[in-house]
Design a binder for these strands. Structure first.
Lengths: 209, 209
DNA sequence: TACTGATGTGTACAAGTGTTCACTGATGTG
DNA sequence: CACATCAGTGAACACTTGTACACATCAGTA
């Protein structure tokens, strides 16, 4: 009688992770969330939390893992949709931003985690970003778009690109979700950032050093 | 007898702000700090908090104001020390990083606040960054280093520069404060980012659009 | 069928939280 | 000097918090 239904395995686990994301999406900072608060939001008794997570940091780490999946999905979509090289930047930025829009809470969590409380979460997110950057470098190499750059220089360029896009995240997340105009501004500005970087990369080997 | 000394006006206020910074410096996230915790760290009774701040957000806002002063100091020092244009980047990055090192907690607070809980603090920090970027643009204009760029393009370039440096902040803050080698790596990488951006800016007007 | 482990529930408790209140001493101004 | 204001104190409040314990229900397996 204590059981209303027989929940599928992992269901409560997901409810808890979604609850945390929901709260983050409402403007709360992940570091300030408590176990009781999350379980309350999830509609679950506090004790259930411990069946799935050791503590809030642990939950954060598992969110990072899921974040990795989202990023991979973005990469796959970008690879499938970017056909002509000249639209590469605009297309990719568009894809990224629309994902950021659809997974608002998720990316808020990511932006928070970069300077968050848990060192492990921090490192996890940085690692995802590094992976994203290295995949980007591979793609550019494959498309023969950066043949004049050494591997190290290409890696650096991609690193800078990923950082710039990540920073744009904080731009998107502060504007209201339905402010299309501002979103368009961010999209344009981000694309120009990347163009500037790629222009720099194109002329990079001509540098004296 | 309740008073041990006669504290100068604003002394406790400073103690409280420093206490918050200290806790942040120890790895805590500002959003997770409580009033009692801060007053305890400051060696002050909880009630005293309300003599100076309405709540934690208010304290955060006042920290942002002080952050502005620190940034201005950095700018002044950079302007005074950068004599030759060719060392401009390396010098400036060096100055910034050494300040970040000396005011570790402060910059941690800044990095956290960018994706923080309080919208007001967030906006405050972003505003400081915008100001920093516009001052940088003015300097470059004055030094005749970017005459071929339109005002808007120069602003964009400086914006990207400031963002890149700000992101490097998170690199410095995760490494141990006395790891000179890693710090040097961050310094070099940041400088190369900026060089890449400036190379892009130098060739920017040749872009078709 | 009986057992085992995973997952859920309710109750309980000590510790910590934000905030209010009434009080006290020092400071500066009329 | 008298007095209002400022900046500090301690005690008290009603809540919330993390965590522990004992128990209930299900799924799968020997």
């Amino acid at each position: 009688m204590a059981e209303r239904k027989r929940p599928k395995p992992g269901e409560t686990r997901e409810k808890l992770m979604n609850a945390a994301l929901t709260l983050v999406g409402k403007g709360r900072h992940f570091a300030s969330l408590g176990i009781r608060e999350v379980t309350r939001q999830a509609g679950v008794v506090p004790t259930s939390f411990y069946r799935h997570f050791r503590n809030m940091d642990d939950l954060g780490l598992q969110l990072v893992d899921e974040l990795g999946l989202v990023l991979r999905r973005i990469m796959r979509e970008a690879r499938a949709n970017v056909l002509q090289a000249d639209k590469l930047i605009d297309e990719s930025v568009g894809i990224f931003i629309s994902h950021a829009r659809n997974n608002r809470s998720f990316f808020m969590f990511m932006a928070q985690g970069l300077a968050g409380e848990s060192r492990a979460v921090q490192e996890g997110i940085r690692s995802e970003m590094r992976y994203f950057a290295s995949e980007l470098a591979n793609d550019l190499r494959r498309l023969k778009l950066a043949d004049h750059l050494s591997d190290a220089d290409l890696d650096m360029t991609c690193d800078l690109v990923v950082r710039s896009v990540a920073f744009s995240l904080t731009d998107i997340l502060v504007i209201s979700p339905d402010d299309e105009y501002q979103e368009e501004q961010v999209r344009k500005r981000t694309a120009r950032f990347l163009q500037l970087i790629f222009v720099g990369a194109a002329h990079w080997n001509s540098r004296p050093e």
